[in-house]
Design a protein around this nucleic acid. Structure first.
Lengths: 106, 106
DNA sequence: CCAACATATAGATAGCTATCGATATGAAAA
DNA sequence: TTTTCATATCGATAGCTATCTATATGTTGG
């Protein structure tokens, strides 16, 4: 009956994930820092739409941002995403053993 | 570069999770078989609304159902839920080690 | 078959949200 | 400071969806 240390709103988490455009954005900023215009360039959506989605992801804690000059660079918060996935699994699928493996055994 | 064996629409998966009422339903049928009327009784929503949500969960593969007499019993598909969580984590947070632990290493 | 019960479907509606164009804000360059 | 570029916010709108009531479908018991 161990309790997880992070607490996260699983509904807000799922809602943040529940859009195709947002998942595309997440894929783009998953493993590198990208600017808003980078995203606009690669997806077929207007810049305000991208900003809108980034705001939702930011509010859910799923992206981090940092200004560099005129640009704002965004990157996915992988740790938070992984925590969210684990929490959903723990909440609803306790019989399944979904783990966030911190240390790799040997 | 190992590929997962299950393929799942992560947008549909996330959309199925992205509603408070559905998460309540999931919690109710997480670890036992419950009838539609059981769910109606415990949540403050009308019966057609519950059927509507169950249909969405069913289409996403997140619940299994089985008729028993007049009733239809629903239960969460924990395996599928866990797979969905893992797939989201694998797709978007490859640096994090979220695993579906099948065997417990003694 | 008919009545009673459980669930599903149909149809309507209100609220939410993804999207856009227009514009404001903020930073750098001239 | 003024211009230019990058992003954020505003306001409007179309499409989606959660919800309800009414009704249909399906199952059991009489």
């Amino acid at each position: 009956m161990k309790k997880v240390t992070f607490v996260l709103d699983t509904v807000e988490f799922a809602k943040a994930l529940a859009d195709e455009t947002r998942q595309k954005i997440m894929a783009l900023c998953c493993c590198e820092m990208v600017s808003v215009s980078d995203i606009v360039e690669k997806l077929d959506v207007a810049q305000p739409t991208v900003s809108h989605h980034l705001k939702i992801l930011k509010n859910a804690g799923l992206v981090k941002s940092e200004r560099r000059g005129k640009q704002v660079l965004y990157t996915l918060n992988q740790e938070r995403l992984a925590q969210g996935c684990c929490q959903v699994a723990e909440d609803f699928a306790p019989s399944q053993r979904v783990k966030l493996v911190v240390e790799v055994p040997e």
